[in-house]
């Protein structure tokens, strides 16, 4: 039962939504909308499990006095403090833009302050690291170790110079060749990968619908 009911739901649902794709009628669309409205509700409940997992992991670390266990407090305290204060003092959450930013609010909530001054700068910092990592990865990728790597290096130089004004100054053909590389060999390869991915997705979906692939059932799969 633990296995056959989810399999039956997936099979019936899967076949139903394959058929639904070909039926534009209003009833068919309503069924689809109904389903898509359901999915986020299930997701919201699963978030509780996620928070439970995070709390358990860090409380175990603190209990065991594992390496760097002190940092676990930095996770647990905000994790519970934010919803706690949100329930007790909803106004502390703030909301809306400040006057200085074109909004109407005159006071800034605690969480607004933390979001704007802590979370956003940290996220931006993480994202900005990407620029340095790209430079480092490009250095490794474009080393002319073999004939193919040399072709890659040349193609990269042409495409990069074709994208910037200095490339046109060096030679008017730079942007044209760069664009040709992007439009034809590059796009052809991307489409070939896309085609394979499409078939792979279709095959995986069929395997799930027909019960060949059952790992998604987790413990009930076997």
């Amino acid at each position: 039962m633990k296995r056959s009911i989810p399999l039956a739901i997936v099979m019936v649902g899967g076949i139903l939504f394959i058929i639904q794709y070909f039926i534009p009628h209003q009833h068919s669309q309503t069924l689809f909308d109904y389903y898509t409205e359901w999915a986020p509700i299930v997701g919201a409940f699963a978030l509780v499990l996620g928070v439970g997992s995070l709390s358990r992991l860090h409380s175990h670390k603190i209990k065991r006095k594992a390496k760097n266990w002190q940092y676990s407090y930095a996770v647990l305290i905000p994790l519970f403090a934010v919803p706690f204060f949100a329930l007790l003092m909803p106004e502390s959450l703030g909301g809306g833009l400040m006057e200085s930013m074109g909004g109407t609010r005159t006071t800034q909530g605690v969480f607004d302050f933390a979001y704007l001054n802590v979370q956003i700068p940290i996220q931006s910092t993480m994202f900005s690291l990407l620029a340095f990592y790209i430079a480092s990865a490009a250095f490794r990728a474009f080393r002319a170790k073999s004939a193919l790597a040399t072709v890659l290096l040349l193609a990269a130089i042409i495409v990069m110079l074709g994208q910037v004004p200095i490339g046109e100054l060096i030679g008017k053909w730079f942007p044209k060749i760069g664009l040709w590389i992007l439009r034809y060999p590059n796009l052809g390869a991307k489409r070939a990968i896309g085609l394979g991915v499409g078939f792979g997705i279709l095959a995986t979906q069929l395997k799930i619908i027909f019960g060949v692939e059952r790992n998604w059932l987790g413990g009930a799969g076997e």
């Binding site: 997701g43 499990l49 996620g50 998604w216 059932l217 987790g218 413990g219 009930a220």
Partner: peptide
Amino acid sequence: PNRDPIVYTIAEETVKQ
């Protein structure tokens, strides 16, 4: 490590199995 809570629950069950 998981980013999505639903993926986390399935991943946990998969590993346990």
